[in-house]
Amino acid sequence: MADTPEAVKKSIKTYIFIGCLLFAFTGITVLVASWEALDFGRHGFDTADAVIGLLIALFKASCVAAIFMHLNHEKKSVYWIFGGSLVFCAAMFALIGLAKSDPIDDPYFYRAGDSKITPPSLSNAVEKP
């Protein structure tokens, strides 16, 4: 971390560069969501758009954390504290995975021998109007 006035002065350009990068990637996120030429996957919003949008957000957040919050060269104790909270955070998302994989809510799960049946969905219906 830049501590001396000289080192801080040198870092200014990096801060400006990261600021511009964040502005640019915010614009890109909006374009991915709204501009048809950058529409990945199906037309409109779908998993591909969500993944790309979140990856960009993750990249932007990493830039803020690494450069503005000086996590790129911090003391070990900070990494342990912050890393620990991220592990808890990941665990909360993993719990959703467990909850969603529980078949108790799936009315088709217990209908043995009826494997051809698929749950109705709006997208299935609109494919063949």
């Binding site: 003391k75 104790s77 504290i81 912050f82 909270s85 991220l86 808890f88 909360m92």
Partner: peptide, 25 residues
């Protein structure tokens, strides 16, 4: 290796990460 208020703010931010992480999840 840190001055006191810095370790305090990181502990606080860690709790905030878990709070907002919980809300987003």
């Amino acid at each position: 290796g840190l001055f006191n208020s810095k370790i305090a703010i990181w502990l606080f931010l860690a709790s905030e990460v878990m709070l907002f992480g919980g809300l987003f999840s």
